[in-house]
Design a protein around this nucleic acid. Structure first.
Lengths: 246, 246
DNA sequence: TAAATACAGATTTTCGCAAATTCTGTTTTT
DNA sequence: AAAAACAGAATTTGCGAAAATCTGTATTTA
């Protein structure tokens, strides 16, 4: 049971969880495909128990579905589910943001500024690249993106709001990931600008403006993803929120 | 590995989950007490694997806490956590309710009415009882209560809102349960009346009024629980929301 | 031919032990 | 006397085999 070299850093369950999560979010394991225990065991070189436990954690995050006695599958993707996640996220984070703006102290402001810059630098570097950035780099970008958005609402003083926001972030990450790798430079949006505006409004303690900017930011992302996943289809318009304008 | 008589109804994991959940919510397993695998194995007559899996599910529902390599414990209770859950629930369900009122059809109305009556009848019967009702009866009452509140928002067309509402219901159930067994008759509130008003406002499609009534309903419950868990203490007032009025 | 039944292969679920890790109380050293 | 080191105990974690279950195919029956 010992690791290659001496001490093991984390539990095998954690390892299984991280690897599976990455393979699902990055699309290596396709949506809807069944996850056979035997396969996974061979693929990751881990036993049944850690895999099973990891699969259960992923189930509670809605990344995998499971039916009793019929095993696990990668959770399917659908535009209507994506829009549900986007709109719910707006509803949750709008409230969290208002509270964070009310309660946030110097440390909160500092964290927003530093995570913003970490994100902006990374985004700039990847955007300037001529070739397609490697998946590892996209992962790092996603992490900084996550940290920035978390920093915005971190002072809201509600564990439940933070928890729900986290869950919705994970859900939308799956949809966002393949697009991030695509034509980043070609995008007509200046996402970094949007982030900066949100940051400035938050630090200026203008709650209404910050919420409006964040809402627009998320809806634009949703629209980008809609276009990416169903370029020709008109069907996805039905999933759009009723009030897309600010 | 075979069951007493022929076919097994569900998986052992499901059985472990249900039993553990009940023992935690009903208070049989006290908040904060450690959950040793050996103990549980003996107590429920189940193996490690089903228990472990059930414990993980309960962890994702915040009913148990866990630290890697240090086992599981029953999640602690705290007034500030309860108020967080109550206020977040209000925020989630207010939105879900508005949408349900917009989208709800005849079937939705019918479901609200029937679940209301099922709840009202049960509540009346338990209230008229002279002695303390048995735990099983309280469980049945809780189930009907849950069905009614779920019916109200069931037409909201958002799986995420419904999922979050469900999570928060479970969380608050833990706090409500011991109180339900107590002096139900002595309560100055007419809870059934509150439910009826909510039902009528919803069916009349008066969104603002329904949301206001539901908010008041949840806050009153929160206050009852505060009083029950910290009767003399002034400290819990600090956890109260800023705007308790309608 | 169609429906019902039986069978066989594949898959999931469960079990209990063994290994690894952490905790606790005692002894030794500074 | 305080800090560090150590050993034994308690607990969690991981594994692979065995049991239970499901799914699809072949066989039988009406």
């Amino acid at each position: 049971m010992s690791e290659r070299k001496g001490v093991r850093e984390t539990t095998l369950t954690e390892e299984a969880y991280q690897k599976l999560r990455w393979d699902i979010v990055s699309g290596t394991l396709e949506a809807g495909s069944p996850l056979r225990l035997d396969n996974l065991k061979q693929r990751y070189g881990l036993g049944y128990s850690p895999l099973r436990e990891a699969l259960n954690r992923l189930h509670s995050e809605r990344l995998v579905t499971t039916v009793a006695l019929r095993g696990f599958t990668v959770a399917p993707l659908s535009l209507s589910e994506m829009w549900d996640a986007v709109e719910t996220r707006i509803h949750i984070e709008a409230e969290a943001l208002r509270r964070a703006i009310e309660y946030g102290d110097d440390e909160w402001e500092t964290e927003i500024i530093s995570t913003f810059h970490a994100l902006a630098i990374k985004a700039k570097r990847l955007q300037d690249l001529t070739e397609q950035p490697p998946k590892e780099e996209i992962k790092a970008l996603e992490e900084r993106h996550h940290r920035f958005h978390h920093a915005l609402i971190s002072a809201c003083r509600s564990n439940w709001l933070l928890d729900f926001s986290q869950k919705l972030y994970v859900e939308t990450e799956r949809y966002r990931f393949p697009v991030l790798g695509g034509s980043m430079a070609a995008s007509s949006r200046d996402v970094s600008r949007e982030h900066q505006d949100i940051m400035e409004a938050a630090i200026a303690r203008d709650a209404d403006r910050t919420v409006a900017l964040l809402t627009a930011h998320y809806r634009r992302t949703g629209e980008t993803l809609s276009a990416r996943y169903a370029p020709e289809s008109e069907a996805n318009v039905a999933h759009r929120p009723k009030a897309p304008a600010l």
